[in-house]
């Protein structure tokens, strides 16, 4: 997802020129560039604009889309919309959580995987749904989810080429 990050100064100049003082859009730009919101960039942004750090932090933690921590190289998002919930999303999360030994919102110590939840992806007909590196998997069961994540983990451990990056990050292809 995150391409080569730009220099802090360049990002800030672009953010401020493009958006004036809208904190939300500025944070969106910063996160687009780094994949998360690095503290030093937020501090530099605060110094440059005079917006107090507490306001920036308030905004960054209010919205779900922002992350103050770097995410894993492989991002797993499990939909926990109502339909996914009644069709067993909780079991998916548990299975993936147990396999990777992390809770939703956390990153594995080797920074290979991060696990997140989302309130609804709007493909309820295929619930429960999980997205791994931009690829959607529908009609899942706990076992299937574990198998999919396990396969990617094995590939990662074997040092497989950076298969999915660039190509499918953001595409909506998938399996259902």
């Amino acid at each position: 997802m995150c391409k080569r990050p730009l220099e802090v100064e360049d990002v800030l100049t672009r953010v401020i020129v493009a958006n004036g003082a809208s904190v939300v859009t500025a944070l969106q730009e910063i996160q687009n560039n780094y994949g998360y919101l690095p503290e030093e960039v937020l501090r530099a942004f605060s110094r440059k604009t005079g917006i107090p750090m507490v306001d920036i932090f308030n905004t960054a933690t209010f919205y779900n889309a922002f992350s103050l921590e770097p995410r894993g190289r492989h991002q797993i998002t499990v939909c926990v919309g109502t339909t996914c919930h009644i069709r067993g999303a909780g079991m998916l999360i548990e299975a993936v959580s147990r396999l990777l030994e992390i809770q939703p919102g956390e990153v594995t110590p080797d920074r290979e995987f991060s696990l997140e939840t989302v309130n609804c992806l709007g493909c309820c007909a295929f619930a429960p749904v999980m997205v791994l590196d931009g690829k959607y998997y529908g009609n899942l069961t706990a076992g299937k989810a574990r198998e999919i994540v396990g396969r990617i983990r094995e590939e990662a451990a074997e040092g497989a080429p950076e298969a999915d990056e660039g190509e499918s990050g953001g595409s909506r292809e998938g399996v259902c």
């Binding site: 944070l27 308030n58 919205y63 889309a65």
Partner: peptide
Amino acid sequence: GAGAFVCGEETALIRAAEGKV
């Protein structure tokens, strides 16, 4: 938007559109 359910409420949405919390 940046992901907050409450922003569907009109006064909250207006503040969010202004780039605030």
